[in-house]
Design a protein around this nucleic acid. Structure first.
Lengths: 228, 228, 228, 228
DNA sequence: TATGAATGAGCCTTCATTCAT
DNA sequence: GATGAATGAAGGCTCATTCAT
């Protein structure tokens, strides 16, 4: 019974717990990976728990050791999407830049994302992401994700900055304006992603549509006095 | 067997085809009425064909003599909603008025509708309305409805007029711009209607949010040169 | 258009409705027949809806057009069992006979039934029959069945008569006494039916046990003064 | 490494087997304690192995080191209940007392127990206790428990004594009579415990019902000649 | 011995659609 | 045209038990 032995014991105990937690986390991620794949391949409503389990090469029951319901799996996929989107946006903006330019950069990141990760928009919609509260998830969880993981916070920063600099209309509360802009960005991308067939049927150019839209929004919030 | 009886018989024979068509149409409407009631009461995904049949006081099979599928019923409800919305908008605009004012009036009609007929927004969303192509409905049917029954045409008129008058940016094709605006109006209302809980959770003012949004869109498409 | 034609029309309409009802009833009975068979063969908890559907040569969904749940099917089987038991008892008693003799006849009918229709006792138990209120069935339904279909009413008649004749103790309210006796008959048969293995393990004679028990109960309620 | 440390080590080695056995037994009891708590709280059918493991603050797998199955856990809970009941009864009877009085005392103990420990009756019922043979438990184990731990033996003693004293009918074998009485006591309590709702629905007095029943049973086995 | 992740058969129920009458 | 009984695939979720560590 040396100290080292004792320490080893402690250490191994700590290691076990840690390893367990690490593996649990990894498994969770694998399940979400599998879910995303199947959602993309089969569509969300057609995806069954079995499909996800098969894709994850796990037993059906195992999934329920990690998530309380199918809906929760979907929601957590959506959270990941938000995180990805936010990271993408963060890369495109810079602290010193003019707010309107940053906002336009954000918009472009949105565009890039919506085109590269179209599946996430379906997930966002079905998860009620971007705003509603799914069963099994608490309101505060949703709020926290919204504020910390979604791009909302970034938008708000730019808007506040832009108002201070006199570029954006200051007659509207920054909170309200940020929500409005977020919902515009978001709602538009979502509706577009839902309806790609019709965009094609009308022979519209998807990217042009988005570009126009984003410019419109940003123009729309400019302080009119700043225009000359 | 009186004359009147006989005459009635003759008469009914003569008009049989017409009457048949009239009655068929009436029955269709009744089914849609029933469907809308149930959709509003139980929510769309929870509504079954049985529910609609019961509400319509018809046999379940009868519904299938009038519509090819449940989805089609939903879609036709959505078409009705579009028609209602369009009528509402038409009342608010006038031919001689300035395009920007007419557009703002349209926006207000949208707001009024989305609040008075919230159920229709759910129907729009679930029907994939506003853009996608449901099973059992042909693409051309969808296109026709979109162009003739939806407010899209009205928006397009105003935008064209506004571009001609130099008020709205003319560097963008009217078709693209109209789609962009329509999608903005529509997508925003929809996302809002889906997420009233979170609007409340964040203590936002629903109407203010809408008003700001609508103004932003219209401001956004103004010709910047027109501003001084 | 003769009267007869008219009448025929009416008649055929009536006939259709009637036939429908008749067939519905018949189908219900067939389902219950099938259920009873499977319950007896596989045991109640092991029986699945699929088993019953297969036995009934019907689709699984069809069963749900006739009964709201598996539990309800079980309960209705139990009701039938009660009716059978009551009929059997009614045959064994006669209006003019002495109450104690009639009661003993009842007891014998109980014995006969519990041995011939042992499966019903399992059904009674699992259905919570004889007293409790299963989901999907209203309390008043249960009460009505208990009073009209179960042997309870017959027991009560005899006890009242026996009290009047001075044979049974009259110091106890007839209602209470009837319930007590019913529960004794019933509970005893049930516990016995549940535990036939152990009866065999102890090499007890099943019928003797029952006979002794029944006599004991009837002796037990005799008016002690009547004894000399 | 102090002496005490060393001594402890020696000591623990010497007594290891004993201590092991002691601890094993203790652990078993803890599991049963936990199980009983959960059974009472959640109802037996709704209780899962996980629930029990959580309540016992043990891993799920550990339970399987102590009991072969969930059913076995339930059965051992039932055995404990029997022991409690038997102890309760033993306190109420005295060797010198008349058999009929002792029997009535037993009945009262039964009543007290069924009311104070209602959960045990549910356990008894679900364990098939009182008579049947659960999987994982041998017939001889069941028999032994029945004879040594259940109140059956006490009942049998009194009946034999009562027969000898000429108070109870001697025309029936003591074994059969004891079983009959035991089943009556037991079956009646059980059926009552299952059906408290209906007892209330019929506005019956629970305690009166029991008292009447118990008296009836005891009266029923009296030797009729002994009555004057 | 203790653990808890993994398992997967199994269950009840729903519901859009068909079709014989 | 009207009806509603019949269908059966499909789906989300549970949970006793096993087993590698």
């Amino acid at each position: 019974m040396t100290d080292s032995h004792y320490l080893t014991y402690i250490h191994s105990t700590m290691g076990t717990t840690e390893r367990r937690a690490r593996e649990r986390k990894k498994r969770r991620e694998e399940i979400l990976n599998a879910a995303e794949k199947v959602f993309a391949r089969k569509g969300i409503t057609s995806t069954t728990i079995d499909d996800i389990a098969t894709e994850a090469e796990l037993g059906k029951g195992t999934l329920y050791n990690y998530f309380p319901s199918k809906e929760a799996i979907l929601w957590h996929c959506a959270v990941r999407g938000m995180q990805k989107l936010r990271l993408l946006i963060e890369k495109k903006i810079s602290a010193g830049e003019e707010a309107a330019k940053n906002l336009m950069q954000m918009a472009r990141a949105f565009i890039a994302f919506s085109s590269a990760e179209r599946d996430y928009f379906n997930i966002f919609l079905h998860a009620g992401m971007g705003f509603s509260i799914p069963a099994g998830i608490t309101e505060s969880e949703v709020k926290e994700v919204f504020e910390k993981e979604s791009p909302y916070g970034l938008i708000r920063n730019e808007l506040t900055e832009g108002q201070r600099a006199g570029i954006f209309r200051a007659d509207i509360d920054a909170g309200v304006l940020s929500h409005a802009v977020w919902l515009q960005f978001y709602g538009f991308m979502q509706i577009l992603s839902l309806n790609s067939e019709m965009v094609e049927a009308f022979r519209l150019n998807h990217n042009e549509l988005i570009e126009v839209n984003m410019q419109t929004i940003i123009n729309g919030i400019r302080d009119e006095k700043s225009c000359h």
